[in-house]
Design a protein around this nucleic acid. Structure first.
Length: 296
DNA sequence: TTGTGATGGGGAC
DNA sequence: TCCCCCTCACAAT
């Protein structure tokens, strides 16, 4: 269920502890047995995140593409980095999905796979188990490029000005509501339902505004704000979309997800700015939260 | 103990 | 627009 920030953190974990290593690849659950056979014993040579997509490159031009979808998660064990920043303390087990959950040491390495593990990637010192992904497949370089070509810009991948220009151009040609466009991964990569609602509130933008009617300067600010939120999400390991908080309120927000957002998951609760009850409605099948007073 | 919803998205219609 | 994928946290019972 992760949005873009989690996938970047997962990619970094692989970059730190798998890239450069030979990897034993298996599918304990069996559903990826053929794919695992094609990767087994090869060296991992690169780890990249683009939006919610993870691409792991192995020797002989073979790529593993993983998309976690709503349920997916990676469980790391062995030698790894707790918060995916260089030099951070090592922990023994870490579940990486939208949230990160350090778990007690299993006692042996590698720990036996628990439940339906689609893929196990094992080096001498670290193991990563994938469960519940929407996508998990072996691709050629051309196939990887075809996937990337369909993705909108990612602030942590694309050149800032080029990414901004691509985002603005994609939105300005469409009559689709901006609240739907922000979730469209071909328009911009990595935004999910939480960041969508929060970006729109922070811009005080009505989600129903057709893309082509959003002033260009507002779109540029949206892109820059997405850059800020994504960097912060990668740094903190969670989605923190409030701002202007004093130190105590900031700490409380980090501790409790209910205090972390302006409008997300706050249907019927008073707007934190004006007190108007937050509205929830379905947009393209997903729950959209906004303040009908501040966002117009 | 059971039920429900969730931070996604592809495909059928 | 709906269904399905296939997992888990948390609420309801």
């Amino acid at each position: 269920m992760p949005e873009g920030h989690s996938v970047h953190r997962i990619a970094r974990q692989f970059a730190l502890h798998f890239v450069g290593h030979e990897v034993a690849v298996s599918s304990p659950q069996g559903r990826f047995a053929e794919g695992a056979k094609r990767l087994d014993g090869r060296r991992m040579t690169d780890s990249r995140a683009i939006g919610k997509q993870l691409f792991l490159e192995f020797s002989d031009d073979r790529w593993l593409r993983v998309h976690l979808g709503i349920y997916g998660a990676w469980d790391f064990a062995g030698e790894l980095t707790a918060d995916a920043s260089i030099g951070a303390p090592r922990v023994t087990r870490l579940r990486m999905s939208e949230q990160e959950k350090p778990e007690p040491d299993a006692g042996q390495f590698p720990p036996p796979p628990v439940g339906a593990v689609r893929v196990r990637l094992l080096t001498e010192r670290t193991v990563a188990d994938l469960r519940g992904p929407t996508a998990c497949e072996v691709l050629t370089p051309d196939e990887v490029q075809a996937v990337i070509d369909r993705l909108g810009p990612d602030p942590l991948v694309d050149d800032p000005e080029a990414g901004e220009a691509r985002f603005v151009a994609a939105v300005r040609t469409k009559s689709t509501p901006i609240g739907v466009l922000l979730m469209d991964q071909s328009v911009v990569s990595g935004i999910g339902n939480v960041y969508r609602a929060e970006l729109l509130f922070r811009a005080r933008l009505d989600p129903h505004t057709p893309g082509r009617n959003v002033p260009e300067e507002v779109l540029r600010e949206l892109w820059r704000d997405w850059t800020v939120l994504l960097r912060e999400g990668v740094r903190l390991g969670q989605m923190m979309t409030m701002d202007g908080l004093d130190e105590e309120a900031y700490r409380a927000a980090l501790a409790d997800r209910a205090d972390r957002h302006w409008v997300y998951h706050r249907a019927g609760l008073p707007c934190r700015v004006c007190g108007t009850p937050i509205v929830m409605e379905l947009a393209a099948g997903r729950k959209l939260y906004y303040c009908p007073t501040d966002q117009r």
